[in-house]
Design a protein around this nucleic acid. Structure first.
Lengths: 333, 333
DNA sequence: TTGTACGCGTTATCAT
DNA sequence: ATGATAACGCGTACAA
C-alpha cells in the first residue's frame, strides 16, 4: 500500500500538497495538482482511513450491535439504519452476535476503541442489562433500541409495547370477542412483559375476568405456540380470540387452529405483534392481523438520535418512543 | 476518552510501562503494574484501536460485502464467516448493500482504506464484474465467494453449479422421469447459467430431447415460478419432473402444482437448489428435495483462505471449489 | 526496571 | 503556492 509520503516523493513535492489534492482544497498550482493526480492514479493510491480518522478525531462510522444478524425480524431495522446512515454520509457497520452476550460485548468493545463515532445497540433481553450498563459507563456515544434501562443515562429508541398490546386487546373486545387468551412472547425479553401487562390492563378495564387459561407462556418461535394451542384444543378449551405477543408464534396458533378444523376468524380471531411476516407466509396462511412495529422508522430515528448526540457532547440523554399500529388483515374482523 | 499519555502521567511513569501493562508484557515492577492497572480501571481507559492498528499494521478485522444483508439465503454464510473469524481472533464486519452495486463499491473502498486486513466479497451478478475487477486491481487481500472472474487474480470460493445441476437432473432421469423441465434461477447471475448448462448436459448425455417448454426462465423469487407453472398447467402441459434453479422458486412450483391438484411427487417431482428453506416452509409444504449448497462451510473456507493469503503476501491466488449435495426429502422419490 | 526517541499515515498550523 | 513541523494515540528498539 502506497502512502502519502511516497506519492509526495514521486511527485517531488511535500505531503502537504498531496493532502490538499486529496481533499480538494485550494493552494496547489494547476500543474502540481495535475501531476499529483496522475501519480495517485498510477499507484492506485488510497489514503489510509485509520490515520485520517486518528487526526480528524472522526471516523464517520457507526457500529451496530444486535442479538443476531440471522433473523428476518431485523430486516427492516437494518434497512432503516443503513439508509439513514447513508443519507448523513456515515458508514454503518454490522456485526453478527449469536444470541450470546459475550460476542455482543466483544463487538461493543471493538467499536468503542475509537473505531466508530457511536454505537447503536439493540436488545431487550434480561442478559443485555449488564451489557447496556457497561456501555452507559463508558464515555461512548450510544443509542439503545428496545433496551429498557430506566435508570441508565443513555439515548433510547423505544416502542410503547404496553399501549400496543392494549390497543390489540381492546380491539378484540370491541369486536365482541370475550373469551380472549394471550400467548406471551419469550418472557426473557422485557417487551414481552410489557405486552402482557397491556393485555391484562385492557381486560381489566373492560371488566373481563381472566381465567386460569387466559395467559399462555410461549416464546418467539412458532413451534411452542403451536404445541400449546394443540394442547388447549385437545382438552376442549375454546377461546374465541387470541392476542399473541409476536408474529412468529401467531403462525403457530393459526396452524394449530386450522389443523383442528377451526375457521379463521369465525371460530378464532388472532392478532399478532411486530408485523415481520415474511412474504412466504402470506401465501399459505390467511393474512395475519397484527400490531405493526415500525422498525424501519426506529432504525432511522436511532441514527438521527446518535448523530444528534455526537453533535452536542454532554447533552442530556433523550428517549424517543414509537407507537405500534393496528394492521387488520384476515385473521381478525 | 483518556489516552495512554494521561494514564502514564497520572501514574507518574512513562507511556512505555503503561503499554507493557496493557499488552501483558514483562518489564514492569509489580508495584507499578498494580498502580497502573488501578488508574486504568478508574478512568475506564481503553486503548485506541485505530492508533494501535496503525502502528501494528494489523487490524485483526475482516470486512464482508454482500448483495444484501436482508436475505435469509445468507444466514448460513454469515454464521460460517463469523464463527471462523472468531476462532482466529478476527472481527468480522458486515455491511448492508441494497442490491445496488454503488453501495457495495462504497463499502469495498471503505474497507480497503486500511481499515481491514482483508475483504470477503460475495456475488455472482453480472453487475459485480466491475466491482470485482476493481478489487483485484487494488493491492488488497480479498476472497471472492461465488464470483466467477476466470481471468482475475484473486482468491476464490466457488460452488460447482454445473455438476450440482447435472446430479439433480441425472437423479430425476434415473428415477424414471423423462418429461423433465428446468426453471432457471435469475439469469443475471452467472450461477444460473451454470446450472442451466448442467441440466442441458445431463439431458443430452441421457439422450432426452429438449422441447420448446423444457426450459422456463424464472428468477430468485417464488412468484414468477408460480405464475409460469400455472400458465403451463393451464395450457395442458404435463411435465412429470421439474428441476428448479433455486429453492425459493421451487416453492412457487409446489404451490402451483398443489393448487392444480397434482400430487407430489406422484404427478410431479421437484428438486430445488441451495437448501435455504426457512423452517416455516417445511411446516406447510412437503419437504423440498434439493441440492444443498454448503454456505456455512464456504463461509468458513473464505475466512481461512483470506488468512492464508494474508500470511503469505504475494502468493499465487487459489480457488477452492465446493460440491452441492443431493438432499432427498418428500418432493422427489 | 525504566524512559527516550522514533515511526505508523494523515491533517493542520504556520512560516516562507 | 509551498513546505517544515507538530499532532492524533500507540508500540517498540534502544539506551540508561
Amino acid at each position: 500500500m502506497a502512502t502519502i509520503s511516497q506519492i509526495a516523493k514521486e511527485a517531488g513535492v511535500s505531503r502537504t500538497l498531496v493532502s490538499r489534492v486529496l481533499n480538494n482544497k485550494p493552494g496547489v498550482s494547476p500543474e502540481n495538482r495535475q501531476k499529483i493526480l496522475e501519480i495517485i492514479e498510477k499507484n492506485h493510491y488510497v489514503p489510509n482511513g485509520l490515520a485520517r480518522a486518528l487526526v480528524l478525531q472522526r471516523t464517520m462510522t457507526i457500529g451496530v450491535v444486535m442479538d443476531d444478524l440471522c433473523n428476518d425480524f431485523f430486516f427492516d431495522l437494518i434497512a432503516g439504519l443503513q439508509n439513514a446512515g447513508e443519507e448523513h454520509g456515515y458508514n454503518i457497520l454490522f456485526c453478527s452476535g449469536r444470541k450470546d452476550i459475550d460476542t455482543k460485548m466483544k463487538y461493543v468493545d471493538y467499536f468503542s476503541q475509537g473505531r466508530t463515532d457511536g454505537i447503536i445497540a439493540y436488545g431487550s433481553n434480561h442478559a443485555d442489562e449488564e451489557l447496556f450498563r457497561s456501555i452507559a459507563a463508558k464515555s461512548v456515544n450510544c443509542v439503545l433500541i428496545e433496551g429498557n434501562l430506566d435508570d441508565c443515562k443513555v439515548d433510547k429508541i423505544r416502542l410503547d409495547n404496553f399501549h400496543g398490546a392494549y390497543v390489540a386487546t381492546e380491539h378484540l373486545i370491541k369486536q365482541g370477542y370475550h373469551n380472549i387468551i394471550h400467548i406471551t412472547n419469550d418472557m426473557n425479553y422485557d417487551v414481552s412483559l410489557e405486552r402482557l401487562n397491556g393485555f391484562v390492563q385492557a381486560m381489566h378495564d373492560y371488566r373481563i375476568p381472566l381465567g386460569p387459561d387466559s395467559i399462555v407462556y410461549g416464546d418467539c418461535y412458532e413451534e411452542a405456540a403451536y404445541q400449546q394451542m394443540k394442547k388447549l384444543f385437545a382438552v376442549g378449551k375454546k377461546p374465541d380470540a387470541c392476542f399473541v405477543g409476536a408474529d412468529k408464534p401467531a403462525f403457530g396458533v393459526l396452524r394449530a387452529a386450522i389443523e383442528t378444523g377451526l375457521s379463521i376468524p369465525g371460530d378464532l380471531a388472532v392478532i399478532g405483534f411486530d408485523d415481520d411476516t415474511p412474504e412466504s407466509r402470506d401465501i399459505v396462511f390467511p393474512g395475519l392481523s397484527t400490531m405493526r412495529q415500525p422498525l424501519y422508522e426506529m432504525g432511522r430515528a436511532g441514527v438521527e438520535l446518535l448523530l444528534d448526540a455526537i453533535e452536542q457532547p454532554g447533552r442530556e440523554p433523550k428517549t424517543q418512543t414509537f407507537e405500534a399500529e393496528l394492521v387488520l388483515r384476515d385473521t381478525c374482523r
